[in-house]
């Protein structure tokens, strides 16, 4: 059975950009959410193996999502894809259990590198 991957970003462009840039070797069902609250609802109702998570979002931001995943001990991997690339922020999300940090815009090369590194492709 294919893995389900969730792309969570408030921007349609960013979601499309990411979807298009995913390595072709990555075999997964892709679903999307346009803010943190929506993402949590999905994560609590169905099994998601991997989340591509934006940080700066309305409703509930990426940090809030990471905190909830940690608090509920959900079994999913998170790759943060964000424009907010300050060292302090990178440190913070890694401490909250993110697997990796990808700087926006998420290009195919960057995604392939990270996913290869963690054995996702």
């Amino acid at each position: 059975m294919a893995l389900t991957a969730l792309i969570c970003d408030d921007s349609l462009l960013a979601r499309n950009q990411l979807k298009k840039s995913l390595p072709s070797a990555f075999d997964a069902d892709i679903i999307t959410a346009s803010n943190g609250a929506e993402a949590l609802t999905i994560l609590r109702t169905r099994e998601v193996g991997l989340v591509f998570l934006d940080l700066t979002m309305p409703e509930l931001d990426g940090v809030g999502v990471l905190e909830a995943i940690k608090a509920d001990a959900m079994d999913c991997l998170v790759i943060v894809v964000s424009a907010d690339i300050q060292p302090e922020m990178q440190k913070r999300v890694m401490e909250l259990g993110a697997l990796a940090f990808v700087q926006k815009p998420a290009t195919a090369d960057k995604l392939a590198d990270v996913m290869h590194k963690y054995g996702l492709i």
Partner: peptide
């Protein structure tokens, strides 16, 4: 939406440099 996202990314880079 596209412009908003480009602005977000530019803001992120600017903030990183400034920080």
């Amino acid at each position: 939406d596209c412009l908003q996202e480009l602005v977000n990314v530019a803001m992120g880079q600017a903030s990183d440099k400034l920080a």
